[in-house]
């Protein structure tokens, strides 16, 4: 079989991103290294998009005021945590991929990729949604709230404080989703009872099984007494 791909057409290798022996530079955490790589890849995508902007323009046909997008990437503006962000993506890309890969906002996690685990929960106009099941085009014109928008600098949101106090995570991968679901609940219901909390969080799976501490953290953040709490200074913590 013939292959007409010349060596010149190989994609650029990210050789400059780390030492040639593959070890990480001192002072660079694994997380910041991975995030840098992600942003470089996204920056590459932006350059490609600029090159194809003429093609993009032709893809944006207007017929009777109906916008037709694709098949190429299109330039979209997303309002995230009150700030507009320009991205160039295919219109049906899941929102979570745009947040993580194009914008480097990796607080929102992707796990199951099919709306079954809640790790990717963000708010769309105040409602909790699965961002893995939401085409990015449907988020245009809506206000998107992510975990990065909580708190203010070093000042954590009361929910984040309560999650820490009640030790409401182990591996922490589900935590941003749980906090965003809890945030939507508290915005809707000031002082939810335990049954309401459990129902509101039933779409967020935690493989570490931290649910009791999560529920207690939500009680605490809503200013309610936390019964039988084993994880605060006042409790008699075992082990």
């Amino acid at each position: 079989m013939q292959c007409d791909q010349s060596p010149d057409s190989q994609p650029d290798q990210p050789a400059a991103a780390g030492p040639p022996d593959g070890s990480e530079s001192r002072g660079v955490s694994r997380r910041s290294f991975i995030k840098t790589m992600g942003v470089s890849a996204a920056a590459g995508a932006v350059e490609t998009a600029l090159v194809t902007s003429a093609a993009e323009a032709s893809a944006m046909q207007r017929r009777d005021d109906v916008e037709t997008l694709g098949p190429q990437a299109v330039a979209l503006t997303l309002s995230i945590n009150g700030t507009p962000h320009r991205v160039s993506v295919e219109p049906l890309t899941p929102l979570v991929e745009v947040l993580r890969w194009n914008l480097g906002m990796t607080g929102t996690k992707t796990a199951c990729g099919r709306g079954a685990c809640g790790a990717c929960t963000v708010h769309l106009d105040g409602q909790p949604i699965a961002s893995c099941m939401t085409p990015v085009i449907d988020a245009v014109g809506c206000e998107i709230s992510t975990i990065e928008g909580l708190g203010n600098g070093d000042q954590l949101d009361p929910l984040q404080v309560a999650f820490i106090k009640h030790d409401a995570m182990q591996c922490g991968f589900c935590t941003p989703g749980l906090i965003m679901s809890s945030k939507a609940l508290l915005a809707d219901t000031g002082k939810p009872n335990m049954e309401t909390i459990r129902k509101a969080l039933c779409g967020n799976l935690c493989r570490c099984g931290t649910y009791p501490n999560v529920f207690n953290a939500v009680l605490e953040a809503s200013g309610q007494p936390v019964p039988n709490d084993l994880n605060t200074d006042n409790g008699k913590r075992g082990g």
């Binding site: 949604i129 679901s181 779409g203 967020n204």
Partner: peptide
């Protein structure tokens, strides 16, 4: 139907 995150979409 699914989770609340699906019920809203």
């Amino acid at each position: 139907v699914g989770s609340l995150q699906i019920q809203t979409r």
